[in-house]
């Protein structure tokens, strides 16, 4: 009899708990329509891409399958070496302009001091220091516009040649001039 009372009490308690932890879910319909488009800003090879470089090498410019990435290999020497028009930034959108920012994520070492990436816009040139990380707002590429990219390296005479190095960069484009995250 004493056991029957205890069992009854447990049943009552568990029934009460099930009522206390119950949730109500309400469903509103929201539809997200994803419709990929061709990238409006693409890279293209410049006039000096894959042309002869110093010492019998080649100015190598490789583009990603959709022209949304690019990798460049160059072979500079002492003093100043300039690579003109090795990459092109194309705005294939003929209706909209985009703000372009260059972000240096991984900079070249200090013995490449003075090395620059230069964007030739329709209104002038903007330089980006390749030995410092950070963002540089280049400006607004007009609808259907085309900018070219140059590289300049300064290696002072009298020092050993610097070790090969990579600068990792991002080209960021946006419809607004807001600072990119």
């Amino acid at each position: 009899m004493r056991n029957a009372k205890a069992l009854l009490a447990l049943l009552v308690l568990s029934a009460a708990a099930s009522i206390a932890f119950a949730s109500v879910f309400v469903y509103y319909p929201v539809s997200v329509s994803v419709s990929p488009v061709a990238p409006p800003i693409v890279f293209a090879e410049g006039s000096n891409a894959n042309q002869p470089d110093l010492g019998g090498n080649t100015i190598t410019v490789s583009l990603g399958a959709n022209q949304t990435s690019a990798s460049i290999t160059v072979h500079p020497t002492y003093q100043t070496t300039y690579y003109k028009n090795i990459l092109v930034i194309n705005n294939t959108d003929t209706a909209n302009a985009y703000y372009i920012t260059i972000r240096v994520n991984t900079a070249l070492p200090a013995d490449y001091a003075g090395s620059q990436l230069i964007i030739q816009t329709s209104t002038g040139s903007i330089t980006v220091d390749l030995t410092a990380t950070g963002d540089t707002l280049i400006g607004q590429i007009p609808a259907g516009g085309e900018w070219t990219v140059d590289l300049s390296f300064s290696i002072p005479e009298g020092n050993p040649l610097p070790a090969p190095a990579t600068a990792s960069i991002q080209l960021i484009y946006s419809t607004s001039a807001e600072t990119p995250p």
Partner: peptide, 8 residues
């Protein structure tokens, strides 16, 4: 974001 690298 479009990645770009220069190997020197």
């Amino acid at each position: 974001y479009a990645p770009l690298s220069t190997y020197t």
